Computed example of a mutant assay.
Amino acid sequence: MFQIIGIVLLFALVFGSFLISGGNLGVIMHAAPHELMAILGAGVAAFLIGNSVPVIKGTLSGFGKVFAGPKWKASDYRDLLSLLFLLTKTMKSKGVIALESHIENPKESTIFSRFPRVMKDHFAVDFICDTLRMMTMNLEDPHQVEDAMETQLEKHHHEALAPAGALQNLADALPALGIVAAVLGIIKTMGAIT
């Protein structure tokens, strides 16, 4: 909701200040399609050239996430903590063998099935199961589990943030494309002078 309010406020303030200072909106309306074609068209083309298909798809799906709001609610975090508590309690009270059926097939697990919102996040479920699986292997170095978790999280964050990075690169390039469009406008203006 705030995003929509921000967009409306942005256009109202920019064009309102232009009108208040004596600007002619007709001139902007006449030039807008050409300018948008030069700037946004070149920006979209550069975005397509510079990014892979998964990043492009991730960026497009990310626009919906911006307006949808946060994915996780406070109750979801409570569910996640409750799930982890039940899994560790099962491991401590009934042993590693009792936990194995839950982490090998979480879709059929009685513990995991109690938390459907957590089950929808495949990365979270896989991360929990992989980490518990490593813990049950009685590794000699206790830091191996921590290192593996950090590596997996870094990889996930790198992949998840790739669309945002691509969009940031596009945003960084748009002022330069705007200058190109402005120079083209100056060339057209100079050519029209008799």
Rank of each mutant, 00 (worst) to 15 (best):
V118L: 00
L25N: 05
G64H: 14
L81N: 08
S21K: 15
Y77R: 15
T90E: 09
R117Y: 08
I97N: 15
V66D: 01
A45F: 10
D126Q: 11
S17M: 13
V96D: 06
L86Q: 09
G50I: 07
E35N: 15
K89N: 09
P106K: 00
G23T: 00
S52D: 07
P106Q: 01
D79R: 01
G64Y: 12
E100S: 14
L40H: 11
H122E: 02
E104I: 10
V44N: 03
S17I: 14
E35R: 11
R117M: 02
V27D: 04
R114K: 10
S75R: 02
M29T: 15
I56N: 03
D79V: 03
G64R: 12
P116D: 02
I103M: 00
H30V: 15
K73Y: 08
E100C: 10
A42F: 10
E104C: 08
V27N: 06
I49R: 04
M134G: 01
K120R: 10
K73W: 10
R114D: 11
K92N: 14
L84S: 10
F112S: 02
M37K: 14
L99N: 03
Y77Q: 13
V66C: 07
G95K: 07
E104F: 11
A74N: 09
R117N: 08
A42R: 09
S61D: 13
S101K: 14
V66L: 12
P116A: 01
R117S: 05
K73C: 06
A68N: 06
K57R: 07
K92T: 12
F47N: 06
A38T: 12
K89S: 09
V55N: 02
D130R: 12
L40F: 14
G58R: 02
S17Q: 12
R117F: 08
I20Q: 01
E100M: 12
I103D: 00
G69M: 05
V53F: 15
T136N: 07
E100A: 12
T131F: 04
M137I: 07
L60W: 07
S113C: 03
L81F: 12
P116Y: 00
V96W: 09
G43A: 11
A74V: 08
P116S: 01
R117C: 03
K65W: 09
V53Y: 13
V27C: 04
T136E: 08
C129T: 02
I20T: 08
L48I: 13
S82K: 14
S93T: 10
M119A: 09
N24R: 14
T59P: 06
C129Y: 00
L84G: 10
K120T: 01
A46D: 12
M134Q: 08
H102V: 02
G22K: 04
K120A: 04
K120C: 00
A98V: 00
M91T: 11
K71E: 13
F123K: 13
M37F: 15
P33H: 00
G69Y: 01
L81P: 06
F18I: 02
P54M: 01
F127C: 05
F63A: 07
V125Y: 00
D76A: 10
S21V: 13
E35V: 15
G64V: 11
A42L: 10
I103H: 00
K120P: 05
L83V: 06
R133G: 03
E100V: 11
D130I: 07
G41K: 09
T136Y: 03
G95F: 00
I49P: 04
L80V: 11
F18T: 02
D76F: 13
D121R: 11
S113I: 08
